[in-house]
Amino acid sequence: MKSTVEQIKDIQNHGYTLDFSNVFNNAFENYKKIALYAGLILLVFSILFGIVGSIVLAAIFGAEKLSNPAFFTIQPIHLSSLEVVYYVAGTVIFSALLSPFSAGFLKMAYCADRDEQFNVSTIFTYYKTSHFFQIFLATATISLFSASISTFLEIQKLSNLGILVSLIISYFTFLTIPLIVFGNLKAIDAIKSSFILISKQPVVLMGLMITIVIALIVGFMAFFIGILFTVPLSYSMTYAIYFAIFKNKKEDPIDSIGQSDLE
């Protein structure tokens, strides 16, 4: 069996095929197995994160500021240079620390696909393995690049362009985490490989991403809480896309910790 790196080199040279309907059907079947459990986990932890976040913000800025809705609509254009640095740094650190939690849903999708048992602790899988640093580094790198550009454009009163750039970066890097946890790639190699993979099938992958966006919009309209039960579809879709590309489902990445394809 070829390594992930070897397969990516083949893809770079020869491309790959991806069937929209097969990927969507596989993602939806996987989603049905994790939707309720993952949705409840998101609901519980959203409440917990909200409480903890409110306590931290109240301790730093004062409880009276939290009662002002304008406090939560920070605009970089109104911040000083130092405050902009703090704003970007805070965004990057928060995203990087939360990313292994999100990666845990990919592990849940992996277990569901193999009819293996999963529970709440599955969500924290990648906080306890050597993948943590690579996930953290990859997310921090992407977030720093995206947040810096979008913040600069917003300061230049080009906020719509900033949003577009952020969406493009997110699109071309959405396979980064699967490449780390399933392909055992290092952070920078995973980011570069994600660009390569997505650039070879941009139309089909864009179509699959649009289905996720539509699902999220429907979930948002369902009294907002519905979005928590449609978000897991994005993880099932990402999982299904990754394994549709590499077509290798035999090895559990947790059993191969430290065996990077680049070594």
Rank of each mutant, 00 (worst) to 15 (best):
A112D: 05
V84G: 08
I142Y: 06
S159F: 14
T122W: 04
L144G: 11
L97K: 10
L82W: 12
I135V: 02
A89P: 01
A138Q: 01
I135R: 05
T129H: 03
F118Y: 11
S148C: 07
F101C: 06
I149W: 11
S102R: 07
V92Y: 12
F136C: 06
L137A: 14
F105V: 02
A140T: 09
F136R: 03
S81E: 07
F94H: 11
S95R: 10
K157F: 13
I135N: 06
T139A: 10
R114E: 08
I155V: 15
G104W: 07
G90S: 05
L98P: 00
Y110D: 13
A103I: 02
Q117C: 05
I149K: 08
F152W: 12
G90D: 10
L144A: 14
L153P: 01
I93R: 00
F133Q: 12
L137N: 01
V120M: 06
N160H: 11
V120Q: 06
F124E: 12
G104H: 07
G104S: 09
F152L: 14
F105A: 04
S150R: 09
A140V: 00
I155P: 00
H131T: 03
L98D: 03
L82H: 00
F105G: 04
Q134L: 02
A89Y: 04
E83H: 07
N160S: 15
N160K: 13
Q117I: 04
D115I: 00
V120N: 05
F105I: 03
S148F: 05
S99G: 00
F118H: 00
L137K: 14
V85R: 11
A112K: 09
I155D: 09
T122F: 03
Y87E: 07
T141D: 03
Y87L: 04
L98W: 08
D115E: 14
S99R: 05
A89H: 01
N160A: 09
A140C: 03
A109K: 01
E83N: 06
F133A: 00
V85H: 04
A147F: 13
S121L: 00
T151F: 05
S102T: 09
T141A: 11
F105W: 06
K157N: 15
Y86H: 10
A96D: 00
S143R: 03
S130A: 11
K128D: 01
L153A: 05
I142C: 01
